[in-house]
Design a protein around this nucleic acid. Structure first.
Lengths: 213, 213
DNA sequence: GGCAAACACGAGAGATCGCTCGCGTTTCTC
DNA sequence: GAGAAACGCGAGCGATCTCTCGTGTTTGCC
């Protein structure tokens, strides 16, 4: 979880060092978002941060570690701030509210941290990041499955998994469109994403939580 | 459209050369699909094709040209074989049939040519390919808009565009899931994709073409 | 058969990028 | 204030990748 990696040699950081790390991670975030992970050169990250390549390697053992630390911090913040977005809901909650609240939270997070999308959806990302992404993916899927099964007790496991995958896939598609627009148009796409999810799920949950209003 | 690029010096190809080109493009397709465009090295493509690096450059001026020629041929085949998938339909056609037919055609094409998805969705692809992708994207969007407006004459232009974008986004999300599975599970995802699209569009087209059956 | 052009080879030139190293500067600790 | 450790620099090493070049082989044409 921390930046050091030399075994049991914590390398006490000064305040200046912590500042540099934050600076470098911020620079890496902008470079990763604009050029992607592989195309981003460590020299470019150092330049963006206004330091020399050598200084960068004072704090990170290699390029992958930068992405990993960035991913760790984002993942941590995501779990901390929005971890409850997919908490089990009161079965009496209307489908529209449940979907709307979850979508709003995740969209807000991704709009605040566009690098998250870039790191998680690049086809060129290295092994460790992929592992983290898969872990997050699995977590999200099981959460969604939990929500679905609480509303659909009789669903077959294979259908449950497939429906959860579809929900996540639809969300990702919508997220891409949302991030590609701004202002009121962005808000409109958020609404369309909610519509797509609600309409997709409504027939499954039946009339009880149907989209009538 | 052809491979030569030296100005007005057509470089007459022999039958052997045409065979090599096809061989190299096939090798490039497999390498691109497995490693992505940037990570794919020209030497690896040549090795996959069983020829030397020098031979590769006898037929392609650079790495980008390989991807471009591959994209051109795929694009051509796509327009030729499935260009009518989004042709204007009889307004009396049920929504389910129209969506189902279009999805089936595009899914079949992408399953036959997985490299198409890899080339079009990699974040690392070079300029020319992006242009082609954008052109295809725009074509598909206007086709979808045409279909939608023939069924929804009163829709506002902004809503029309947004709905078309959503349809294409939902399709891409479903395509990714479809390509990630095989056999009967793949078929199930195709059906889910159709469901998602139909349910998304059904409320718009009203009861006339509604999803009842 | 003989000539020119197309095809084929593979070593390596040239460029880029991740990362290191030696040395100088700042900060902490006593 | 002195010593140690953290911080900072930037030239450049080594690895990798795209693309070239000189040379040899095959094919098409008369």
């Amino acid at each position: 979880m921390s930046v050091n990696q030399e075994k049991d040699q914590p390398r006490r950081r000064q305040a200046r060092g912590e500042r540099r790390i934050a600076q470098l991670l911020e620079a890496a975030a902008t470079v990763f978002t604009t050029t992607g992970y592989t195309a981003a050169s460590t020299n470019a990250i150092a330049r963006e941060a206004g330091v020399s390549p050598g200084t960068l390697y004072q704090f990170f053992p290699n390029k992958e570690a930068i992405a990993i630390e960035l991913g760790d911090r984002l993942m941590h913040e995501m779990r901390e701030t929005y971890g409850e977005a997919l908490a089990p809901v009161d079965p009496a909650t209307p489908l529209e509210q449940a979907v709307g609240a979850a979508v709003d939270r995740f969209i807000a997070f991704n709009c605040e941290h566009p690098v998250f999308f870039a790191l998680m959806h690049g086809p060129d990302i290295p092994g460790r990041i992929t592992e983290e992404h898969d872990a997050l993916h699995a977590t999200l899927l099981s959460r969604i499955e939990g929500l679905l099964s609480s509303v659909l007790p009789d669903i077959r496991p294979a259908d449950l998994s497939r429906t959860a995958h579809m929900c996540l896939g639809l969300y990702k598609a919508g997220l891409e469109l949302v991030l590609a627009h701004e202002g009121t148009e962005r808000d409109a796409y958020v609404q369309e994403l909610k519509n797509a999810l609600i309409r997709y799920l409504a027939p499954l949950v039946g009339d009880r939580l149907g989209p009538t209003h």
